[in-house]
Simulated assay, not measured.
Amino acid sequence: MRYGNILTPEGWRLGELHWQDGRISRIDGEAVDPQHNDLPRLLPGFIDLHVHGGGGADVMQGGTALATVAATHVRFGTTSLLATTMTAGDDETRRVLGDIGHYLASPDESASRVLGVHLEGPYINPGKLGAQPPHARPGVIQEIEALCELAPIELLTLAPELAGHLTLIEQLSERGVRVQLGHTLGSYEEGVAALEHGACGFTHLFNAMSGLHHRAPGMVGAAMAHAEYAELIPDLLHVHPGAMRAALRCIPHLYAVTDSTAAAGMPDGEYRLGEHAVTKCLGGVRLADGTLAGSTLTMDQALRNLVGLGLTLAEASDRLSRFPAEFLGRHDLGRLEAGAHADLVELDSRLNLLNVHVGGRLVAEGESRVTDA
C-alpha cells in the first residue's frame, strides 16, 4: 500500500493505493489538487519504447547486456521498456534477438519489464542513417517473420519510400507488428501513403527524417498533419522546445522516449552504440564527427523537462506512461486503476524520484535525486 496524491485516469485522488499479487486491487481517497500539499505524487510507471542501452551496456552486445539495461533504467522510473536494436547484418541481428528471447524466458523481476523488441532498422534509408551503422536495406516479410520467432517484435522502424515497403507495412500490420516511420528521406505524400497502409507512428520525430518546408512538407509534415501517435526525445538537445510545443499541439498522443544509449546513468566517457564508438560529454552522446547518437536521457528527467515546457504533471505523465501503453495496446500498463499492473513511481513535490514499484515489488528507493542527463 502507498499513500499520497494518486494520479488515476479520472484525475488526482488523495488516499491509499492497494495491490495484491502484483495488480492494483483498489484505490481509496478523495479528489485533490496536489499543488495544495507536499505529500508524494504517485504516477504510473514510465514506459520507454526506445531504449538502446544504459548502465554501460548496449543491447547489441547481447549476452547479459539487456539485464544491465533493464536494471539501470528501473532506477529512473522506467517500469517497462522495449529493447531497441541498431541496424546490423542478418547474423548479428539474429544473435541479438536470440539473446533477448532468452532473457525474456527468465527476466529479472527487480528490473524494468522488457515488453519485447523495437527493431530500428535495418530497413531504413541509407541516405538518412543518422548514427545507425551502414547496413540499411529493404525488408521482406519472410526475414522479419523469422526474427519474430527469436523474440517478440512489438515495434519496427522503417523508411516507407524503399521498394516494397508499402506492402511490407500492410503485412506487418496484419501480423500485429506496429510500424513507425523513421530514418527516412520520404516525402509528405509517401508518409501519408504509409499511414494509409497501416503505419501508426513516427520514430524520434524531427530527427533523421525529411523536414517541414511550406512547399515540401516532408515526413515531419505528414506526422504533424496526420499522426495520432509519434515518439519524441525530450532531452532539449534533439528537438528545440519550440518544435516540441508545435508537435504537442498537432499530435494528440505524442509520447516521450529516451533513445538512451549505454552512456545513460554513467559518467562522461567512451561507450558503444552498436558497432560505433560514442562519447558522452556535456549531457549528450555523439559520434566522432559530432552527430548526435542517441541520448543520456532518463525518463524521470524527461518528465521534468515536459513540465518545464508548461505541461501539467498529469499531462506529462500521460506522455510517459498512458500513451505509450495505449500505442502498444496494453491497457494493463500505464495507468493506476484496479486490475492494472502495480507499476508506479513515487515523486516528491519537486518531481524528484523517491521510489519505484514493478508489480507491487519495491525495486528502487532512496533520497530525492536528479539525474545528470
Rank of each mutant, 00 (worst) to 15 (best):
D99T: 02
G55L: 01
G56E: 11
F323C: 12
D268Q: 12
D91C: 02
G15P: 04
L205V: 05
P267Q: 08
E231I: 15
V69W: 07
A364P: 00
I124F: 14
M224N: 04
F76M: 05
L115M: 08
R175F: 14
G284D: 11
Q171S: 15
L353S: 09
V220S: 11
A65Y: 02
H204G: 15
T79E: 01
H276Y: 15
R361W: 10
H238V: 11
L297D: 12
E149A: 15
E161F: 14
H331C: 07
A256S: 12
G130K: 04
A373T: 06
L273A: 08
I27W: 07
P122S: 10
G191S: 13
E367T: 00
A325P: 14
G334M: 08
L172N: 06
G218C: 08
H226N: 11
T93W: 04
E10L: 03
E120M: 12
G186S: 15
E10Q: 09
H118A: 08
L313K: 05
P241I: 03
G116E: 02
E161R: 10
C200E: 03
T298H: 13
R330Y: 06
L82H: 05
R335K: 08
R322A: 15
A373S: 10
R137H: 02
D108E: 10
T298P: 07
I27R: 04
R319D: 04
T84I: 10
L287D: 05
N207E: 12
A302F: 09
G308I: 06
A136F: 12
A70H: 03
H253K: 11
R319C: 07
G139H: 09
F202C: 13
H36M: 09
S25C: 04
N305L: 10
L155R: 05
E120A: 04
L155E: 01
L181A: 14
Q35G: 06
A373R: 08
E149M: 07
V59H: 06
D108F: 00
R245N: 03
G310C: 13
L39K: 07
A159G: 14
